[in-house]
């Protein structure tokens, strides 16, 4: 089907459901922040954030029913985010190596 001719129309109900899920995940983030998770605090909080962001991309930003070019653009932004993280971490993770050989 040509998406330009017959765009997918989401119902108001589906938006409300996604909104409620996002609210629930926000409550869960607060709950986990107050829980004794030790080193798992950051991974859990980031995991919940990734799920929330994915829901926003797929439904509120209409990625789920978008053409492949839109997926390519969205994917490209994540590649660039990956570049930023990878080369920044290349600095942080290799700082310890310097001391090891001095």
């Amino acid at each position: 089907m040509d998406e330009h001719e017959h765009p997918h129309v989401a119902t108001v109900g589906s938006y409300v459901v996604i909104f409620l899920i996002l609210v629930a995940l926000t409550v869960l983030t607060v709950f986990t922040a107050l829980s004794p998770l030790g080193h798992w605090h950051a991974p859990v909080a980031l995991g919940i954030a990734v799920v929330k962001a994915t829901l926003v991309f797929l439904f509120f930003m209409h990625l789920l029913h978008s053409p492949k070019l839109t997926w390519l653009v969205a994917g490209g932004t994540f590649v660039w985010l990956g570049i930023m993280f990878a080369l920044t971490l290349a600095d942080y993770w290799s700082r310890g190596i310097v001391g090891r050989y001095q």
């Binding site: 570049i83 290349a90 700082r95 310097v98």
Partner: peptide, 22 residues
């Protein structure tokens, strides 16, 4: 152009290994 920013940071305390890559 997106892969070379660290060459502005050779004296910042950035790891020499990262500086070599940049």
């Amino acid at each position: 152009g997106f892969l070379v920013w660290g060459h502005h940071m050779f004296v910042s305390g950035q790891s020499p290994y990262a500086s070599t890559i940049f």
